[in-house]
Simulated scan of single mutants.
Amino acid sequence: MTETVIRTDDGTFAMINVFEVEPDKQKELAEVMREGADRFIRHRPGCLSVNILTSLDGKRLVYYAQWRSKADIKATMADPDVQHYRDKAAELAKPDPHAYTVYSIHHPED
């Protein structure tokens, strides 16, 4: 997949981690997360996409990754290379990770 697609009932899972970060550390955190995603996460079995969003006020970073299964998420989180980046990120900010499924989607009328 070359783009992030959000659908209901497609069987995928999202791992969303919202970090609370000091504004002067947001860019460093974003780079840590980008490097980990580029070097390891996107190559893991079951990874569909990784998206890193930074808040305009500099106080948050949202890490949104889509996966084929909960087992793929669990296996990835057990990888020592991934744990290294998780630990580096936790030194810079307070993480709050959770797995999600898409409940509903709403678009403006065409």
Rank of each mutant, 00 (worst) to 15 (best):
E20C: 09
V21D: 11
V21E: 08
V21R: 06
V21L: 07
E22Y: 07
E22K: 13
E22N: 13
E22S: 12
E22I: 03
P23G: 07
P23V: 10
P23W: 01
D24P: 13
K25Y: 04
K25P: 05
K25G: 06
K25R: 08
Q26M: 08
E28M: 13
E28H: 09
E28C: 01
E28V: 15
L29V: 11
L29W: 06
L29H: 11
A30G: 08
A30V: 11
E31K: 03
V32W: 03
V32R: 02
V32Q: 02
M33C: 07
M33L: 15
R34M: 12
R34P: 00
R34C: 00
R34G: 01
E35P: 03
G36D: 04
G36Y: 06
G36S: 03
G36V: 09
A37T: 05
A37P: 13
D38G: 11
D38I: 03
D38Q: 13
D38E: 11
D38M: 12
D38Y: 08
R39V: 01
R39C: 00
F40A: 01
F40G: 00
F40W: 05
F40V: 13
F40L: 04
I41G: 01
R42Y: 06
R42W: 00
R42A: 10
R42V: 13
H43Y: 15
H43V: 01
R44L: 14
R44P: 07
R44G: 06
R44N: 11
R44E: 14
P45Q: 00
P45W: 00
G46I: 14
G46Y: 04
C47I: 12
C47K: 05
L48G: 15
L48T: 05
L48Y: 09
L48N: 15
S49C: 02
S49V: 01
S49W: 04
S49F: 08
S49K: 11
S49T: 09
